[in-house]
């Protein structure tokens, strides 16, 4: 199915809107989890922190305010329906333009700089930024875009290790637990702990990042991995790091694992943390012009 000319403009405007809206409305599954965690805290400090989280969530929704100052690194996960006929390079351009328009039109803080010169174009874009992942869905005639403005407090807490097969699953458990505790207050806990297992080093970290975009309450369909998610979450929440690392019962809202097969000599594990807001926003575009927005 050939997409009409205006489809590319729609992609551009949708990406602009996804960026802005993602900073203002926290996904409902995350809000529910924060509410639930707030009730579970017993100390004065932890209760104070959760009340600030909930107040800011409400302000975002009711007063159309950005919840956090960090506009993040813009990351798009795009899934192209196999039945769509479109110009991929124009989709790419539309996503970049949408990102720049969000930054200019709202305006948003441009958080993107050249790594050595630290030049900031004030557009939230630069060489290879935004980050755009492409995937394909068979027998589908929709374009799905999942956007995340990945904040740096949590992104700076990314860890990867090429374990060896002899380290086994025990090595994986140790690595995850030690990194989350080592990160302490820095990623704005309670976090979603994204874990990548397997693949190559680069795929492993991408899987860890992708895992953080899964809605809360979803378990990995593989029962062994789902059990590992639960075991690690329980252990992490026994460490007592708590909201903002000031002590408390909820250090992580979830552990999400995504995996890939790997080399016979490899046992890679990656951890990518997502802060308590876990901002994400999703759009589904059809060639007939309809756009559905969700989380």
């Amino acid at each position: 199915m050939e997409v009409p000319e205006q489809f590319y403009t729609q992609v551009e405007e949708t990406c602009r809107d996804l960026y802005i809206q993602s900073l203002k409305e926290i996904p409902p599954d995350v809000v529910a989890a924060i509410r639930c965690a707030a009730k579970n805290e017993t100390t004065e400090v932890a209760r104070r922190i959760f009340s600030h989280y909930l107040q800011s969530i409400e302000l975002g929704r009711e007063k159309n305010m950005m919840v956090c100052q960090d506009t993040g690194i813009p990351i798009y996960w795009v899934e192209i329906g196999g039945r769509l006929r479109l110009d991929g390079s124009r989709i790419n351009q539309a996503i970049i333009k949408g990102t720049e328009r969000a930054t200019r039109e709202h305006p948003l803080r441009s958080s993107i700089v050249s790594p050595l010169s630290r030049e900031n174009r004030q557009t939230s874009t630069g060489h290879r930024i935004p980050i755009i992942h492409y995937d394909f869905a068979p027998d589908s005639d929709v374009l799905d875009i999942l956007f995340m403005p990945k904040g740096s407090g949590s992104e700076n807490m990314s860890f990867m290790k090429m374990l060896v097969p002899a380290d086994g699953v025990k090595g994986i458990k140790r690595f995850v637990l030690e990194q989350v505790v080592g990160a302490g207050a820095k990623p704005c806990p309670p976090t979603i702990v994204g874990v990548g297992i397997g693949g190559s080093s680069d795929l492993c970290m991408t899987l860890a990042k992708k895992a953080t975009t899964r809605p809360l309450g979803s378990a990995n369909p593989d029962p062994q991995l789902a059990a590992l998610e639960t075991e690690l979450l329980n252990a992490i929440n026994e460490t007592g790091i708590g909201p903002q690392g000031l002590g408390g019962r909820t250090t992580a809202l979830a552990v999400h694992i995504e995996s890939a097969w790997t080399h016979i000599t490899c046992n890679p594990v990656a951890v990518n943390l997502q802060c308590w807001r876990a901002e994400r926003r999703r759009a589904r575009l059809r060639p007939n012009g309809s756009i559905e927005i969700g989380f």
Partner: peptide, 20 residues
């Protein structure tokens, strides 16, 4: 405070790893 919480969490981690 944050350093105390983290150091306690590190001690707790050693116990947790043993338990696991």
């Amino acid at each position: 405070l944050q350093l105390d919480v983290q150091q306690q969490a590190q001690q707790k981690t050693a116990e947790l790893l043993k338990k696991m």
